[in-house]
Every structure is written in C-alpha cells, then in structure tokens.
Design a protein around this nucleic acid. Structure first.
Lengths: 238, 238, 238, 238
DNA sequence: GATGAATGAGGGTTCATTCAT
DNA sequence: TATGAATGAACCCTCATTCAT
C-alpha cells in the first residue's frame, strides 16, 4: 500500500509480465518478491526477528499473508532472504576506493572512512544487531553474513596491502593479520559502542575522520617503509 | 549485584537467618535465587531474550513459575538480573594485571591476552550476543552492560597508558583513542568473527598470543619512545 | 448497536456483500458475530463476568479464540457488546402499550404486567444480576444499562402520566416520583426476591396480575381524580 | 453469627477453654476469626468476590494465609461467612422504630427513612451488589441473605401493619402485599438507580425524606381509614 | 494464483491452596 | 499452632500458519 506511484509502477510491470508470459509462476515474480523483502526489511530491522509479526510485514509489504508464504516457506526463511539482501546492499561499492591505487595514506584514510561510516551507520548497526541476535537461533545466518560481507572486504584489503608491499611502501610479515588490524584501527572505540547501544547515535563524520587518521598513522608507523616515508616527505615539500 | 562486598555480607546475613529461623523470607533465599538465575542463564543465553520462554526457565531452574515471579517481577527483570550477573563474572579480575606496572611490553601482552581470551571465550560471546540481540527491545540493557563492563576496563587502560606516558615510555596525543586502539588491536579479526558466529570455536591460546603480540608491537611502534626502545635493548642484552 | 434500524440495514448490506464476494471481511460477518455473542451470553449470564473464561466462551460459541479477538478487542468489550444486545432485546417493545392511550386503569394494568413479567423473567433476572455484579469492575456498564433501559422506560411513563393529568384523570404534584412509585408498585416484593435468588422461579402470570392490579389500585386511589372515578363508575354501569 | 446471645455464650465458652488449656483450639479463637472477617470485609466489599485476592485479605487482616485456611475452608466459605456478618450488621436495629407504635404516619415516615437510607447507603449497596453478583456462582448466598435480612424486616412490617389495622387505622385486604408496597414506595427510584450504579452517590437525607413522605402519603391514601383521617385532623387542629 | 479469516498452541502472568518449617 | 514460600493450573491474549474462497 502507501505509495501509489509504486503501485502504478507495479501494475504496469505486472501487465508487461502477463503480456509476455501470461503470468509468473507461483513464487516466481521478482517484483512481488522484492516488494515482500522491502516490507520485511522495514519491520525486521525495526523490531528484530521475534518482535516482528507476519501481520506487520503483510501490511508493510502490501501483499497478503498467503502470498508471502508462497514466496517464503516461513518467517525464518523470509528473514534469511532479507539478511542476504541487506548484506548485498551494505557492502556493495564499499571497497571501490581500493581499486584505484593512488597516494597510499590518503587511499587508506578514504577507504577507512567509508568503511567506518558504513559499519557504524544507524541502519547498518540495526541490521548487524538483528543478525547477531538471531545467530543464536539460526547459526548459519551470522556465519554466512560475515563470510559474504566483512570477510570479502577483508580479502580486498589483503590484496591492497600486498600490492603496497610489493611496491615497497609497506613491510608486513602477516598481511592477513595486518588487514584485520587496519580495519579494527579504523573502528577503534566505535563499533562496540554502537553495537551495544552505548552510543545511541552514529558517530559524526569529524569523529570518524579523527579516528581513521589516527588509525592510519599508527598503521603506517608500524608497517610503513623508509621508501614510504621518503615519498611522503617529498610530497609534503612540494 | 554490583557491590560484591555487600552481596557477601547479605549472603552471610541470609545464612544466619536461615540457621536461626529455618527459612528465608520470600524472594530472599540466595540459593533459590542463584538456582533461578542459573536456569535463566541456560535458557536466555541459548535462545536469546524473546525466544526464551518462562516455561523453559521454570523447567531448567527446577522451580515453579510462581516462585520465579516472587524473586523477579517479570521476564525482563529476570533477564536484566542475569545480565548484571554475567557482566560481573566476565569482567571480574580482568584488569588486575594492569595494577602492577612492571615490564611495559610484557604487561601489555599479558593483559591483552587475558582480555582477548575472555572476550572471545565461548560463553562470553554467547552472553554478548544475547545482550546485543536484546538491545533492540531494552535499549538501556546493552548501554549499561557496556558502561559497567568494557567502559570501566577502558578507563583502567587509559590510566595505565597515562602512567606509562608519565614514565616517558610512551608518547601519546589522544590517550583515550590510543586505549581503544590497543584493545581493538588485541582483538583484531577475532571479536567480529566470533560474534557473528563465523568462528564456531573460541580462538586457541596460541592464536590469541600471535594476535596480541603483533598488536602490541604495532602499538609500541606507533607510541613507544626512544627511552622505551633503549630499555628494551638493555633488557635484551642482559 | 443502538439504532436497530441501522443494524438491520447493516445486516442486509453484509448479506448482500457475502453473496457478492463470497466472504465477509474480518470481524464483519454478522452470523459469526451473533454466534460469538450467543456463546458469550450463555457463559457470562451463567457465571458472571469474572468467573467466565474466554476458553469457556470459545467452546460455547464454537469458534476459535483468535476469531473472538478479531470481533472484539478483549473480554470487557465482548461483555459490553453482549450487555448492549441484551438491553436492546429486553426493553424492545416493552412500552408499546403506553402509546395508545385508552382506558386508563386497564392501560396501566396491561403495561404493569408486561413490565413486571419482563423484569422478573428468568433470563432478564440473570442478565440484570450479571450487570450488577460487573458494575463493581466496570462502573459505566450498569450506569449505561440503566440509562438506556429502565430510565428510558421511566421517561415514557412520565409522559403517559402527564397526558393523563392533562386529561384531568390524575392529579399529581411530582410526576417523576409518581412514575417511579408506579413502577415499584408493579414490582412489589417481586424484583428484590428475584434478584437475590430468594425466588428461584419467575412469578406466575396470576401472581403478577394480583400484584399489578393491587398496585394500580393503590396508585389510582392516591392520584386519581373525581373525574376518573366518575368515568370508571359510568363504565362499570354499562 | 447472627445471634448475638449465642456469640456471647460461645465466647465465654472459649474463654473458659483458654483458661483451662492455655490456648484456643485451632480455628476457634473468636478474636482472630473477627480479625479475618474484618479484613475480608474491606477487600471483598471493595473489589467483589473474584477480584479480591486471598493475599489482599491476608494483608488487610494481618494474619497468615495458613491461619485463614484454618478458620475457613476456602475463599468461598470465607465470603459466605462475611456476608452473614454483613447481613447481621446491616439489618440490626433497622426495625426498632416499629416496636414503639405511636403516631402512625410519623412512625411510617421515620421507619421508611431509616430503611431507605440504610438500603441505599454506599456500603450497603456495595454489599448487595457483591451478594447479587456472587448469587450466580453461589446460589444459596443471595437466597439466605434475603431470607434472613429483608424478609425478616418485611415480617416485622406485616406485624406492624396488622396492628394498625386492628386499631382501625388501616384497612388492608392483603397485608403481605401491602407491606411490600410500602417498602417499595419508600425506595421509589432509589434502589434500582443505586444498585445499577446509575447513581454514583447515596441519595441525600432530603431526597430520602421527600420520597418517603410521598410514599407514605400514597400508602395512607390507599389504605388509611376514616378513623385515621379523623385522628390526623384532630392532631393537626391542636 | 492470491487472499485474509480462522485456527489453536503457546506466550507471560496471577493466585487459591498446600505443607514444610 | 501459625506461618508464608512454593506450587501449578488457569487466566487473557498473540500470532505463525493454513486453507476455503
């Protein structure tokens, strides 16, 4: 319900679909599926798994109870599908800045800020809390979330650091560990405070910059080579 | 709760009472209270706040429903009492090693390992997941947990670092932030993997030592003074 | 509720709807609603508000618990709806005889008997007991019952007596009070005996006639004019 | 209870017992019994049978749960005992004014006012509501209440009227019915309004006097003899 | 295929009654 | 004997799921 524009759009889409193939098979219409997921997002993220009711989702998604059960076997499966979606949305494009290697320190700062801002943003914290809370009941949920989200990002950081090392800018014994250290340094004091609701608001951009710049400094003091120092010196004097 | 001295005193008092008059007052028997909390722990930690049912707890604790409601006004209060207990247990003595300032690097390593091992131990991860999951419904819960747990520990780290700085061993601009950085470095790659159930087992002692030693090295490279380096050089040559 | 014409209209509307679209909307099926009310009647009237359990009503009505809660928000609302229904049924048509002014004494006797028989009938006594018993918990309930039931009847009696006075048949100083006196005279010894369950059966028609005729006689001796006496004399001699 | 003579006798017996054996037998201490009943009165009358909890009564009476169950088999029996007590208190002395036959009209007015004030007083209405409400569950309760309360009073009114008839002041065919009529006239419009909580306050003394005087007038116009009229005429002229 | 009214097990909580102390 | 802590059945109500329409 609610958004009439969306409704119209949806109707048009349906029309096209039905003209093309007659009608999508049961549980196969991707538009309807997205519609359900969208409703589920609003309710699950807001209330958590248990407190969310299928009625709420029904209302929010604008589809009937029966339809939801055609697309998803039960509440749990709907939830899992939503989390997959969320994960995709959250981590999409997060690592783009690492693709274009440029100035090392500034690249790290830029990336660190994107990462830190994303992970500690209000809606992502809510999603993570929901996943963590549900991990007790649905063990694979958190695991898969981490594997396909943070873990993949971590892999990209590893690749980036390895390249920097090859360029002689960093000297790292355990790159895997260093990548984790870098991430944690960028989130110092923020992630746990947010996830435990000690902070009720996301950190400001300034705060994030302060934490990230300090983290990058620590990281480079520990792992930066003389070559890096020289390059930075040179850059500064120009 | 909270004040362990008072608790001990109260327990003694109760014991005397029970010896004197045979039976403790309603909601005052510490043995029964512990029994209920223990049952609640098993159920809440296993299922999370919402999914846990008072019937489950009743069964697990081996007391009747009515009795639970004599000791705790409702499900939420029982849960909060449990979390307080858990918090007390978890963070008790965690920071003792910081009290006796000795060799800086080794003290940091020792402390880092205690911290890291504790925070990532199976039962503590379960407890933290439960707290995080319930934070949606009971916002103060996570906040209070963090404030009286990790935050207090953080404060002790700050004091410790400040002392080290006064002794000329460290040079730190933002001690608060450095303390967070230190903690995060000790947990690099561990905490998030555990909390999201990507790791299904607590890290081994060896793994923890590797992470912590590396973290301390990074930290000291970033914040250690020449004086510290000289001292360490001297210590090594003896 | 309230407006019986509207109710009938609504029911017709619902009927049409159900013929047209096959199934009534949630909480809108008048047949199901009536079924629930009927079950509620049996249980509430039999046991009183508090002692009646929603499970009993579920069983008696032959619908599921959930369905009841679709039609009525809670136990209290169901009870109030039932009482409204009962009130409507009880007082419907009770005062019709007053509309056609004819022979004064006989009209009063006829009306008195209808009133007395109704108020002391087994099912109406049960309903009144239920209302009175629940008035402690739901004060407006009894108040509204009286206001829309007995009070409205009383008002009609007042109008009737006033007309009789205008015709010179009665001479009454306080018509409001006289109307109450008339009602009470018609119920002399009956209402309280029934309501307190001292009588376990409703009075017989003969008994009621005896009480009412005597009551009317007392009333007319007190308030009848010479003109009334003359008219009655005349009527008797023909 | 009820019979005060019997009570006194019993108390003496108890006293002797306690002197003899040191302590009253279980469930035999009349002071404790009274204490329990007093607590029960406060709670039952205030909340009604179902809503009253044994814990409330325990607190109000200042005795332990177990003790109550020594004196009364269960909640219902305690309630019945209380109602018996209440009945005794309510109707005690209510009919004294009928014992001293004096001026007929004034005696009737005086008695009518005592009766009307008593029956419609806040606490007596509460008690009656409680009895009526519980009559569904405990059928004999209301019956016995009426029989030993209002019924006995009614018998006294019958005797009084009969005496007045013998003195030639009244001429009544059905004295039983006339007695009921008199009572109802004195309560015209009051009792039902109070019992249904349409009136939330007891009527004022002035209101009662108005109703009763009018009721007595109606009654005497209907049943008074010429002799009564003459006597009243004579009295007035002096 | 889509709908949403109906289901009924199970939720948290209360409280009359019992019985060890 | 008197106590009141403990019991557990029963309370009202919710909601994931089903299935007649």
């Amino acid at each position: 319900m609610g958004n009439p524009a969306a409704d119209t759009e949806k109707e048009e889409c349906e029309l096209l679909e039905s003209l093309r193939r007659g009608r999508p098979a049961a549980g196969q219409d991707p538009v309807k599926r997205a519609q359900i997921i969208e409703g589920a997002r609003r309710v699950f993220i807001d209330k958590g798994f248990e407190a969310a009711s299928m009625n709420d989702i029904t209302r929010e998604a604008g589809v009937s109870k029966g339809t939801i059960y055609v697309y998803f076997a039960n509440k749990e499966e709907l939830f899992e599908a939503l989390i997959e979606e969320e994960r995709g949305t959250i981590f999409k494009n997060m690592y783009d800045v690492l693709d274009h290697f440029d100035h090392l320190r500034e690249t790290l700062v830029k990336f660190g800020m994107v990462l830190s801002a994303k992970i500690t943003s209000a809606k992502v914290i809510l999603a993570q809390r929901t996943v963590i809370g549900a991990s007790e009941r649905i063990p694979e949920l958190g695991s898969r979330f981490y594997e396909r989200g943070p873990k993949r990002g971590h892999d990209k950081v590893v690749i980036f650091l390895r390249e920097a090392a090859e360029r002689g800018l960093l000297e790292i014994e355990d790159v895997e560990l260093a990548a984790y250290q870098f991430t944690e340094l960028c989130l110092s004091g923020l992630f746990r405070q947010c996830i435990f609701a000690y902070r009720t608001k996301a950190p400001t951009q300034a705060e994030i910059e302060h934490v990230v710049r300090s983290g990058v400094t620590v990281f480079l003091k520990a792992y930066g080579t003389d070559k890096l120092a020289a390059e930075e010196q040179a850059a500064q004097s120009t």
